[in-house]
Design a protein around this nucleic acid. Structure first.
Lengths: 257, 257
DNA sequence: AAGTGGTCTAGACCACTGT
DNA sequence: CAGTGGTCTAGACCACTTG
């Protein structure tokens, strides 16, 4: 096949990219951002071929490994697919949200629900066996304990109970009323990295029903989650109960290659 | 700091690695596998430093980029952390399962539950609005429809309803009785890549209660999931109901850096 | 046979962290 | 200051897919 004379119909991208070598932003990152933007706004159509890496490198004045690094980062995000002997294609569907550690506060806010928080408890306590196991500390060790009721439009949505390692973070009740726990942790310089979650359902007890304004026996969604920072240390254990009538989890999973 | 005479206490790893240049397995992959194994079995202790990349490359007779590629793959898996000016460390916690597109069949089997499947329906139908939107096809277009009851120890666990694009895969009832849908899809050469999921809860209707051997009004866990292949095409839409008393979802999320 | 991505090398310089 | 990871180059050969 000739170089440019037998191009497949309409699969070539006339999109132009460029990099600024005086910028402190890494070259591969500049390129990956431009590629991502072109995919997002449709200038690179789903299914279209990207053109080979060596040409692209030549046009940009970059080396091939640098271009590959940019492309690889988008392959990791699921925006591009590489096929040996074929080329690099834009993925067919618009997979928007990559994969997030969902924060109830952010979820509700994004849905335009104006979340409110009522702090029921903000204290320290001794870790029981379950909490100690989740946080990797000794049973009986001191931990921070926060209990919150989350509401939207004055209606309760969830009851949240969180345990944190002692001394990790100073939690002010006023802050907890105004934003989510994850935001407070990030503000304190904690880099959240991963979380192990279990999601189930059960019927509401009388106490839970009262607290969440549901009938006794109503279906509730439950989640237990241990969150880890970037060094793998547990930084939070949550045990939460949601009104199934008012909330569901949405998330995206990526398959390990 | 001298090269080897002021080593920090116990953070050096005397673990040896080696690569086989005659193997068809890529060198970076051989190394990453050995590193992962050493982390798994504790020969590389949590928090320990890996030693710098250049030395490691020299000892193995590899170039630095190759060693970096091996290390990077484990950083992506969350097993290692790199810190500029510090070094590469093994993460502190034992994050077991990376992140998987959970298959009920595999989950039950891994738990030693010997899952059984009763195929209730294996046919084709016209896509309704919900199915059409999920699979990105026209309303009324033909789709495959499978309904299954999943049991362990003779007890129902879940009712599974799946829609698949027409012609994607030939689904034999006998195969469906013997294994999970995802395994069948993978066997057919379909590379699963990601899934968008929604998990909620609700009370069982009379029909659902009957089918799942629960009382009417019992809490049920519900999941809707659209699965995409590696080109971003939807390959399956599932709408499932689980007995909350017998099943909960467990999964791990990674935060996007 | 031609074109693609997959892997690999042997260097280089820079930015950040600690002493 | 020395040591670390972060980025980048200009090549090379191989494996796979397609005409």
């Amino acid at each position: 096949m000739g170089k440019r004379d037998t191009e497949a119909a309409g699969t070539e991208s006339p999109v132009q990219f460029s990099v600024d070598r005086n910028s402190p932003v890494p070259l591969y990152f500049q390129l990956s951002q431009q590629l991502e933007a072109a995919i997002e706004n449709g200038r690179l159509a789903p299914g279209s071929l990207l053109g080979n890496e060596i040409d692209l490198a030549g046009r940009l004045g970059l080396s091939r490994p640098t271009v590959r690094q940019a492309i690889q980062s988008l392959v990791d995000k699921g925006l591009l697919v590489r096929r040996r002997g074929i080329g690099t294609q834009v993925v067919h569907s618009q997979v928007k949200r990559p994969l997030e550690l969902s924060s109830l506060y952010d979820d509700l806010e994004a849905a335009g629900q104006k979340p409110a928080t009522r702090v029921l408890l903000n204290t320290t306590t001794e870790a029981n066996a379950e909490v100690a196991a989740a946080l990797g500390i000794a049973e009986g060790a001191e931990v921070a304990l926060v209990e919150r009721l989350r509401l939207t439009h004055g209606e309760p949505v969830a009851h949240l109970r969180n345990h944190l390692p002692a001394g990790l973070l100073r939690l002010e009740t006023a802050d907890l009323e105004e934003t989510g726990l994850y935001r407070l942790m990030r503000s304190a310089g904690i880099t959240l990295h991963s979380a192990r979650q279990a999601v189930g359902a059960r019927a509401a007890t009388a106490e839970e029903a009262e607290r969440l304004d549901e009938a006794e026996g109503a279906p509730l969604l439950t989640m237990q989650r241990t969150t880890f920072d970037d060094t793998g240390r547990p930084v939070e254990f949550g045990s939460h109960v949601y009104r199934a009538s008012r909330y569901a989890f949405e998330f995206q999973l990526l398959v390990r290659p």
